[in-house]
Structures are given as structure tokens and as C-alpha cells.
Write a protein that binds this DNA or RNA. Structure first.
Lengths: 343, 343
DNA sequence: GTGAAAGCGCTAACAG
DNA sequence: CTGTTAGCGCTTTCAC
């Protein structure tokens, strides 16, 4: 079956420890010949080190845990790929926990599992849910107990090594809304994501801030509580039409595509009869017949940053205080938003 | 730091082995009280078993390796999620190797890495490349050497436990092409994926088979060699227009979207001036202003099947001969293909 | 019913 | 330069 260091030792007539050292890259006192002899038999026997054993003795592994939301969303898979690329280059593998949109399974169970997997670090790219203060408290505690560097994509206020890599969603919401207002829209629908996500609430604050700044009253009726999926975007349109909105700010592009789909069915013309602005800037945004105006989130850049920071965290020995990085939005104005002409 | 079974033993004044047994679900002779006492202190100490240690002694782990292509393609991320869902339910975690479209890194290196990770099984969802007989020979050998069940998504002809979960791409190519011919098209462009992939060649065979059946001569000029990405779809259109094609069979939906994008720029109307049929049926296919006709690949069903088979392979003890499952295509005719009216 | 001992594959300190 | 020993955290005989 799989050969071990023991097999090599037997073949070469050496001790296990000598073989171990010979195979190691660290400077040591094994003669060049022995070294070569060991290397050759290792190759011949198709030897591959058992990383479980290595990690057991080293108390660290070449594994990084990652928790992400539904990767069917291109925005998220792009992030995933960007992180993966950086880590793989440096010889790290990822143990993935991908969350289905439907079952956002218990955070605590997840952390326990991860705790078992003895990964050397963790990337927690799952949104912070603000409606569970108690669970979050425990989660924070458990995360810190892991004793490994953790990169989060929200402000978890963890007290352990790592970085918070965030995005200014509030500003994004503000800019998107302001743009619509500047176009002359006054009844602006707001299609939100899961209302308990911090990232959702921040976008909503931005929306309200813009309205306020321009003296438009906030109205609960113009807010449709979505969940970041295309389906809900589709369903929401009839509601918005009933509210006579002239523009919709969708909290992600995915839902905006759902709006497009419904608009086609209902015969609503974008942007003449309805302006739509999205959020994320997924690659598809530019493929639609009416390219989608959206708030750009530099997700690949963020993923790359996360990957690199992770490597630094893992390989630099000196302690660093927990870092923080905030990415800023910019507006990508394409064909789906237009000046509003009162009929 | 992280507590171990030893800590529990000390706390309870018991031996390590007793604690191990008490914590185990297997039937054994530990008294109910001891059992409970151990359980409670384990909880109190936030004990989580070290799976590296467990797998070392059991010679198997709750880890499954997976190799997939670029998950930014919804078709692939859907597959990934479907597999993940089944495995996670049964307590298995996935070690992911996601391949970037650009760097299809060495298979052999990948297998070696996986061999180190001591996963209990492997899902090889990466396309078989037919132009590397030598590498494939070694790959096959190395895969078999892993000594674990392997599910592939191509016919690798492996001689180890597992299943080949395939799709009849040839039939898919045939049906798509036949549909276009039946619509009256004669100059049918063919936008292929990476030409060295078996799944690409099969589609191409299907295309040629349909042409032949209807007495249309195959012409090299009508075939544009792509790579399954939107960019190449975009770029290919001007070539196809130069060839005066009236329809294009795109080997996946992604590239078809690229064609859409280019068509908009060039002012080419779909389907009046150009019919397009894709392959995969990604969710977005239905969102475009002109919904994309495509060949349906039941990828979620396939993923679920793979997950379930994997569990069966892992948990049923009796030996089973290597299985094979072939999914069949069906045509989804939407708005992007139409009867050709000679001008 | 519980404990002692051996060992999974590997590394690292300590001898020689 | 190389071998011996101990031990990472856990499971599993085999004694008691």
C-alpha cells in the first residue's frame, strides 16, 4: 500500500530518524550520499509523507479552513478562487465549508468541526449576523479558543491574530442611492439581502443616509426584504411596481438579474421605465443587453489580499496586532440607470 | 490551549483508554455513570477530538479530496455545492483543489499532494485530457496507488473502487446541431472548448455526426477553438461573422454569453440574424433578454449522485465492482434559436 | 468495568 | 554523521 518512512529505512538499511532528516529541507548533518540514496528510494517507493502524522507531531498543518457562503454566486466563487490561488502557491490546502443559502447551519457546530480538523488558520468569510448577540458571543469565544490566526470579512472584534478585511457597504449604499436621486428619482425601491446580516444593514444605512441628505422621506413600503438570490429579485418586482417606484437599488447583482428577468416578463423597459442599480459587479453584469449599473466591490483584490495576509500570518514569527483593512466602493454606471423623465 | 483526551482523563481520575471508550459511540463496557461524567468534563473543557490523531490510528479520515475546474463557472459551483451538501450531511469535510482556468497545474503534482493529505476518498471532477497519453498513464497508476475509492467524471478506466459519473456529450452535441439544422441552418459555427479535453472532442463528434447525417459537409473554417470562458466567446463572434454563419453551437453557456455580449456590440440580432445554442443550462441562461436555448446537463442531480455514491463507497464494507453511470442530454429550446429565413 | 501497553507515521532531542 | 528514544493524540488489544 502506501509506503512510509519506515519502508525507506528498511530498504536503505538506515534508521527512521536518519531518513526523516535526509528527506527534510532543513539544514542538518546527513551526508550528501545518504541523502541522495534516501531520496532515490523514496521516489522509487512513491513515498509521500503522511501529513496527519506530520501535523500531529508539529502541532500545525499545511491546512487552512475556510467558511464561505453559497459559491454559486460568482462574487463569492471569485473570492474563493483568489484566496485559493495565493494559498495553493505556497503549498497550503483548504478545507472548505461552503454554506448553502438555505441552511445557514449553526456556527457553533461549524467551529467545533473546524477545531477538530486542526487547521493552522481560518478564513471566516461568512457574514456576521447581528440578531444573535448570544450566539455571537459564544462564537467569538470559540473562535478565539482555536488559538490560530483568523481572517474575517466583517468586524468580529476578535482578540486573536489575524485581520478583518472589510468593505464599506454603508458608503456603497449611499453612493448607489445618491446616484439614483441625482437622476431625479424619488420613489426608490430598496431590495435588501437577509436583514440580519451586518453587511445588509450597512447598505440600508447608506440608503437612508442618502435619502435624508436629499430631504426624501424614508418609507418602509419601499423596502422589500430579500435574501441575495435571483429568485427573490424576480418575485420582488411586482411588489415594487405596485409601489410605483421609478428606480430600484438592489443589494446585490444577483437579485438585480432577477429583476431584469421579471421586467422582461412584465414588459417593463430598463432604464426608460425603471432604473436599476446593483451591488458587487459580478462579471455577468456587463453581459446583459442593458449592462447593469452597480457598485464595484474589488473582490478578487480582497481575496488576494486575504491569501497573502494569511501566508504572512502563518510564516512570519513575530507577533502582530490584529489588523484591519477597509476597501472602498466605486460606482460603475452603465445602461440600467437613467435620468427620470416624468410622464 | 486545546484540551486533549489526556486532560479529561486527569480531571476524571481515569485512564486515557477509558475516556476514549467512554466518548466512543461503539458498544462497550463502560458504566453509564463514568460515561456521563466523562461526557460532562469533555464538554466543560471544550474538548474536540484531534482528527489528525484519529485518522493516524484508524488509517482513514473523515476527509474527501476533490479536484474541480474553475468554480466561477456556475455549472461547476453547482456541482461542487451539490456534492458538498451530501458529504457534509454525513459528517465528511472536503479538501478542495480548485483549478484556475489558466494554470491547469500538473496532475501528478496534485495526486502527490492528495496522497499526503490522507483523504479517505477522492472526487476527480477535472476533465480528462486526451493529448497526454503518457501523463495519463502515470496519472492512472498513481490514482490507483492511492488505494482509496475514486469517483471520476470521465472514463478514466481506473481499476479501483469507485464510479465513473459521465454525461453523453456526444449525444448533446448531436442534438444541438441537429436542432440547428432542422431550423434550416447550413453554415453552423462551432465554438469549442479546450480541444484536448475528452468532453470537448465528444461534443465535436456529435456535431460532425449530425452534419453528416444531414449531408452537410464538415468544414474546418466553421470551427473556432475556444476554452469555455466568456472572453473567448466574445472574441469569436467577429470570426464567425466573417464566415457568414447563421447559427453557432457553443460548447458551453458561458461562451454563449460572450457571443451575446459581442452581438450586442456589433448590432447582430439574436435569433433573427443569428441563432445560438449553448450547453450546460446554467441558471443565468434563462435571465437574458433572449433566453438561451441550450443542452441541459443535470449537474445538480449528478452532484447529488456523486455525493451519495461516495458515502456508500465509504461506509459499506462489501466490495463492489467499479460502477458507471451515464446521464443523457435533453434540449431546452428557448428564444435564441429560430428558423432561418434566407434573406 | 477499567487500566496498561503498544502502535499509527513522523520529528526532534540526545547520545554515541 | 547516524541511531536511540520519546512523544504528538488517539484507539485497541489484552490483562486484571
Amino acid at each position: 500500500m502506501k509506503s512510509t518512512i519506515k519502508d525507506i529505512a528498511r530498504e536503505c538499511g538506515l534508521s527512521v530518524s536518519t531518513v526523516s532528516m535526509a528527506l527534510s529541507d532543513k539544514p542538518n548533518r546527513i551526508s550528501a550520499q545518504t541523502r541522495e540514496r534516501v531520496r532515490l528510494t523514496a521516489e522509487r517507493l512513491h513515498y509521500q509523507p503522511n501529513l496527519a502524522a506530520v501535523s500531529l507531531v508539529n502541532r500545525k498543518s499545511k491546512m487552512v479552513g475556510i467558511v464561505v457562503n453559497d459559491i454559486r454566486n460568482t462574487h463569492i466563487s471569485s473570492l474563493f478562487m483568489a484566496i485559493n490561488k495565493e494559498l495553493e502557491e505556497k503549498g497550503y490546502s483548504m478545507i472548505c465549508h461552503v454554506l448553502d443559502n438555505e441552511d445557514l447551519s449553526s456556527n457553533l457546530k461549524l467551529i467545533k468541526l473546524i477545531s477538530s480538523e486542526n487547521v493552522s488558520a481560518l478564513i471566516w468569510a461568512k457574514s456576521l449576523e447581528v440578531d444573535k448577540p448570544e450566539e455571537n458571543f459564544n462564537l467569538k469565544y470559540d473562535m478565539e479558543q482555536l488559538g490560530i490566526p483568523i481572517i474575517t470579512m466583517d468586524e468580529f472584534k476578535l482578540e486573536c491574530a489575524g485581520v478583518d478585511v472589510c468593505f464599506d457597504y454603508n458608503m456603497g449604499g449611499y453612493l448607489a442611492t445618491k446616484h439614483l436621486i441625482t437622476c431625479g428619482h424619488e420613489r426608490i425601491g430598496c431590495l435588501t439581502g437577509d436583514s440580519n446580516f451586518k453587511v445588509t444593514q450597512e447598505r440600508l444605512s447608506g440608503y437612508r443616509r442618502a435619502l435624508k441628505e436629499f430631504g426624501i422621506e424614508y418609507s418602509q413600503e419601499l423596502v422589500y426584504s430579500g435574501n441575495y438570490t435571483m429568485e427573490v429579485g424576480y418575485k420582488s418586482l411586482s411588489y415594487f411596481l405596485g409601489q410605483n417606484v421609478t428606480a430600484i437599488f438592489s443589494f446585490n447583482d444577483e437579485m438585480a438579474f432577477g429583476l431584469y428577468q421579471a421586467a422582461r416578463i412584465y414588459g417593463v423597459h430598463i432604464p426608460e421605465e425603471l432604473s436599476i442599480i446593483g451591488f458587487d459587479n459580478v462579471p455577468f453584469a456587463d453581459v446583459m443587453e442593458v449592462p447593469l449599473s452597480t457598485v464595484n466591490v474589488p473582490i478578487v483584490e480582497m481575496g488576494t489580499y486575504i491569501g497573502r495576509e494569511m501566508i504572512a500570518l502563518l510564516e512570519n514569527t513575530e507577533e502582530r496586532p490584529r489588523g484591519k483593512k477597509i476597501y472602498k466602493p466605486d460606482l460603475l454606471l452603465r445602461g440600467s440607470t437613467a435620468k427620470w423623465k416624468r410622464k
